[in-house]
Write a protein that binds this DNA or RNA. Sequence first.
DNA 1: TATTGTTATACTCTATAACTATA
DNA 2: TATAGTTATAGAGTATAACAATA
Lengths: 164, 164
Amino acid sequence: MNDKNTEKGQPAFLLAQIGAHAASLFGERLSALELTPPDAGILRLLRVAAGISQQDLSTRLQIHPSRLVAILDNLENRKLVERKQNPNDRRLYSLHLTKNGGEILERIGRVAREHQDALLAALSTDERDQLTGWLHRIADQQGLARGVHPGYQRLGRSKSQRDD
Amino acid sequence: MNDKNTEKGQPAFLLAQIGAHAASLFGERLSALELTPPDAGILRLLRVAAGISQQDLSTRLQIHPSRLVAILDNLENRKLVERKQNPNDRRLYSLHLTKNGGEILERIGRVAREHQDALLAALSTDERDQLTGWLHRIADQQGLARGVHPGYQRLGRSKSQRDD
DNA sequence: TATTGTTATACTCTATAACTATA
DNA sequence: TATAGTTATAGAGTATAACAATA
């Protein structure tokens, strides 16, 4: 057996490698807006799903409810998100984007486009389009939900995977 | 402005999403061998760079030296890796794959191929080849080193990115 | 009795820095 | 004095589980 499988090929490894690289670069760009990737995911979801509860947000983005508290406290303190009372059920909050939240979302969009252009600088426009189509097919076949980044979870390793 | 940028397009986000998904799935498959992704990266590197020191390994895979100690302790206890004394400089270890290490590396290769087939099930062979070529071009243009997964680092977020 | 949001606590993981032995 | 490897410690980040309010 030769080294073909390690020296070339390897699209799965490349996808993981480039994906982690892309997430890291986007995180750096976001930090200029003092935002984290989960912050951006929440703001983006609230634009199209205004009024949802923290519980709902938690399940949609796969972020633990207790973690959401601190994240939303921060976004609310910065007047990007508002917690309104739900008149139908006073246990639930109704989460909304503020005006500032909408504005920063546009800045996030600009940052995302710049990030994307830099990341895909090696490809032509046509190639990017075709790549995008294939990535969508992979994502759909793998059952990945639109707009839900697994990195939002940040789960630790299980005990069986420890090094000691 | 319409929703085009969030509802379609988005290859950068898809790359990050699919990449994290791929890394997660591969990690699950590796756990059946009681290995972590960094373990696999180390074993793979030691096949082509036998005899290197821990310091060298540390810089090549971007794993912190103090973290390497526990990882290598584990691999050595399991007889997958051997620390030999370097006769030229007794401060350095000379790291080598054992026979068992070579065998498990072949099992890792099989696992990686199964993983790759499952991940890219949506694409034809020709499409996979073309995708691979583009990913290589992106990786090269972005300056990513072959076989070095950024996920090996597992850096925490900087203080400026905290949620509190 | 169940559920939402919150808080306190414990746990896991990592880097920092001190330490030893060699050079 | 500098470097390789090791260890101890402290820090950051997370989930778990108990909690109060409401249904």
